[in-house]
Each structure stands twice: as C-alpha cells, then as structure tokens.
Write a protein that binds this DNA or RNA. Structure first.
Length: 307
DNA sequence: AACAGTCGCAACCGCAACTTC
DNA sequence: AGAAGTTGCGGTTGCGACTGT
C-alpha cells in the first residue's frame, strides 16, 4: 500500500494565488500558526494543496520577507556561500535574513550563475586568453571546477562533536579553563545555565604516553544553540571537507550516500578550525543576521580552505 | 500594431529525510 | 523495526512582462 498523496488533486485550484486566497491563508496562519499543512487547506477553507499553501506562505506571505532588489553585499554573500555550499538554497537563504530559498535560487539561475560561470571560465583559461570562450557546455565541464570548494552535503542532525585529533601547539595552546570559557561562549546563556558543568571539567586535551593526542572533548551538542553562531550544517561542511576526507578529494557525486552512512559518526574538527571560531571575530551572537560578521567569517573560512 | 524571442518569478513536482504510531 | 504520514528541499516548468524586429 503506497502512501496517499498529500492532497487529492481533484477540484483544487492551481497556478497563481488570488488576493482572497492569500488573505484566507495569512489570516488562518496568524490565528493558528504554521504547520499541519496537509489539513490546513480544508480547515482554512482553501481549495489548495497543503504543499501549495506552505510554499505560498514561506515564499510570499510571511511577514518577515524582505522585498526589493538583492543588494551588492547580499549578492557577494550568495556567491561565496554558493562556493562553499553548492546548491543548498535553504542554507544560503538561512544566512540572508528575509530572503527565501526560492528567491535566491531564482536569482542565482537568472543572474549570478551566468556571472560566476563567466568568471570561472576566465580564471580557468588564465591570461593567455584575451576573452573567455563561448559559453558552451563543452567548456564548462572541467575548467569551471577549478578552485571550487563546493561541499555537497545533506542537512543532517549533529549529535556529537569531537574536537581536534592534532596535538596542541605550544604557542597556540589554550588552557583548559580558557577553553571551557570559550566553549561556554558557544552556547547561549540559557543553555549555559542548564549545562552540566562537570562535563566541562574533563581535560580538553588528552595526551597519550607516546606523546600523541587523543580526542579532546566529546560532548553532546544537541542543545547547542548553533543558530547563534554557526549551525550544524557548517559542522557538516567541515565533516565533508576534502582536506579532511580524501574520499571527497576525487569529487563527483555520491557524497550524500557517504554522509548518510556516517550520519552517526562524530564530526572531526582540527585545532585551527576550532581556534578560528573561538578567537575570531565571527564568534558572536546573532551572526546569522549580521552580514558583516558572516562576510568576515567567510573570509577566514576561505583562507583556511586555501591552506 | 503584431509577432517572436527572452527573461524573471511564482508555483509545481518528485524525492528523501524526518516523525509518528 | 518498519510502515505510514508529514515536511522540506532542489530541480523544473508555466506564464506574464518585457524587448526587439
């Protein structure tokens, strides 16, 4: 027995939404809140599929949607996020307050895609060419991949975080207490209060007798308020970073499968990444709504990737 | 003015992840 | 554990607006 479709298509409206339908939908959601999309149309008295209602609300009716043209700053951010994340529009949109994934996707497909593609070709062909070759499919295959660090992942839930397999450098060494304080900054205050402090008393760095380092800290991050800093997708980003996973260095698709297979695997950070996040300016509350912070964060990430 | 081609955006579709039972 | 139901995502399509001839 297959699953039932999300809605019966018989007798339902399709296509553009009328002002009346918009009003009914937003009134209903204001009253009852989002969610339960499947039953929403019936309850609200709309002849629409639940999916269609959800889409209309998320992409158009939500009160926090930002209208108007995409600014240069936003555009630059989209390009850089796309370089890091690929076509993960919802994640990219998550860093651009008020913008929807659909809007960014459309904007990319109609504007930025061509622009970035053109730039990539010029870079790939270097100074020897006075102009980029015609924009033909045969051209785009290999050259446009040069310099790309796109990590293809699926959003997964992050439940464990392991920090740093590499030994601490004397210069960069952080005391346990400092590390604890810094780690605490990664959590919002409310979560911090609820945190079991004992778990933070454990040594941050553990060193074997032969001098090699062991995993340093293993704590549940289920309650980590990642949206205030970096969300788990960024953790996954590193999890799938080609520099840390030679499998991925060969490129190509199939990373989704790999990620699925290791969805319960701990995510490995190295010291530099942790330090960047701890010490850098990017570690501050509400980063998601602060384009400048995000830009500076991306700068540091790109530098790190180039190393 | 009429037509064809192009562009941009909203909406749809299929799939997979996630949740519930 | 697994089937059924729900939600969210990304690719694609349809259509109106715009532009050039």
């Amino acid at each position: 027995m297959g699953r039932t479709p999300c809605c019966s298509k018989e007798g339902l409206n399709r296509g553009a939404w009328s002002a009346t339908e918009d009003k009914i939908l937003s009134d209903y959601i204001k009253l009852h809140g989002e969610g339960r999309w499947r039953n929403l149309p019936k309850r609200a008295g709309l002849k629409r599929c639940g999916k269609s209602c959800r889409l209309r609300w998320l992409n158009y009716l939500r009160p926090d949607i930002k209208r108007g043209n995409i600014s240069n700053e936003e555009e630059e951010l989209i390009i850089r996020l796309h370089r890091l994340l690929g076509n993960r529009w919802s994640l990219i949109a998550g860093r651009l307050p008020g913008r929807t994934d659909n809007e960014i996707k459309n904007y990319w497909n109609t504007n930025l895609g061509k622009k970035v593609k053109g730039q990539s070709i010029r870079i790939a062909y270097g100074k020897h060419l006075q102009k980029a070759p015609d924009d033909k499919p045969s051209v785009e295959a290999a050259p446009t991949k040069i310099g790309s660090h796109v990590i293809r992942t699926k959003a997964l839930r992050c439940t464990k975080l392991f920090i740093a397999p590499s030994p601490p450098q004397p210069k960069a060494e952080i005391s346990n207490q400092d590390a604890i304080k810094e780690t605490a900054k990664l959590r919002d205050s409310s979560t911090l209060e609820a945190m079991e402090l004992e778990s933070l008393q454990a040594p941050l760095w553990t060193t074997r007798e032969d001098g090699s380092s062991n995993s340093l800290m293993d704590f549940d991050v289920g309650d980590l308020n990642v949206s205030d800093l970096l969300n788990t997708d960024f953790l996954q980003l590193y999890c799938d970073n080609p520099l840390h996973d030679q499998d991925n260095a060969t490129g190509g698709d199939g990373n989704n499968d790999k990620l699925s297979q290791r969805s319960n695997q701990p995510i490995m950070f190295n010291e530099a990444m942790l330090e960047d996040w701890m010490v850098g300016d990017c570690v501050q509350p509400n980063i998601a709504s602060d384009l400048q912070s995000l830009t500076s964060f991306l700068n540091s990430e790109e530098d790190w990737l180039k190393q």
